[in-house]
Amino acid sequence: MAHVRLKIQRFNPEMDSAPQWREYTVEAEPTDRVLDALHAVKWHHDGSLAFRRSCAHGVCGSDAMMINGKNRLACKLLIKDLKQPIVVEPMRGFAVVKDLIVDQTKFFEKYRSVKPYLIAEEPPPATERLQSPKQQERFEDTTKCILCGACTTSCPSFWANGEYVGPAAIVQAHRFLFDSRDQGAEERLEVLNKASGVWRCRTIFNCTDACPRGINVTKAIVEVQNLLVAHAKQGSTTDAAQ
């Protein structure tokens, strides 16, 4: 066991006028994760510390937060890999509910706005909707999203304009736009082509760097932009032919 120093941003909107930093020293193994250190603070030093976590194994995406200046999952980051004091803050761009818990209401509104489900006009076949491995490969990368919000809240375009649909919603849209079984492109592209849509991306790559699942978020965004251009070209060709 070793001493681990943490510097955590604390904020209770019901009591504090502004966020404040508090430092804690806990006992932890170097191979423990930041989440273990946060548990040590909450369970042995200050029970009022609030943060989200669920599976604690990098699957549910509940414990995304800013650790040493980067968005990460607290359950995937080992203490030995970090400079101390470990600086922990809530994700940027959302209102803070308390300490490290942020209000993700708008995040999920944007997620729902891109219709993240299969839209198929034809009646379902008797068996599965078949798809070749190559067709599945086309959107394989974006199926890995766990909706932690690390990408969206690392994006300077989102910090500047909270209306921006954000990388996470675009990744979700990509997952269905490039699915050979899906027919909802028109509906999704309409949302993504708005001023708050995919064109707000400035190719900054913070989203790709922040993604705990290793999704190439920027590539997905550029592919959706290109799809929009292709649709616009197709539309103008159809209009000219009529």
Partner: peptide, 14 residues
């Protein structure tokens, strides 16, 4: 509020 430590992409954009 601390600085977000983005990578090369953030610097190139800045």
């Amino acid at each position: 509020m601390s600085r977000y430590r983005g990578g090369i992409g953030q610097w190139s954009w800045m």
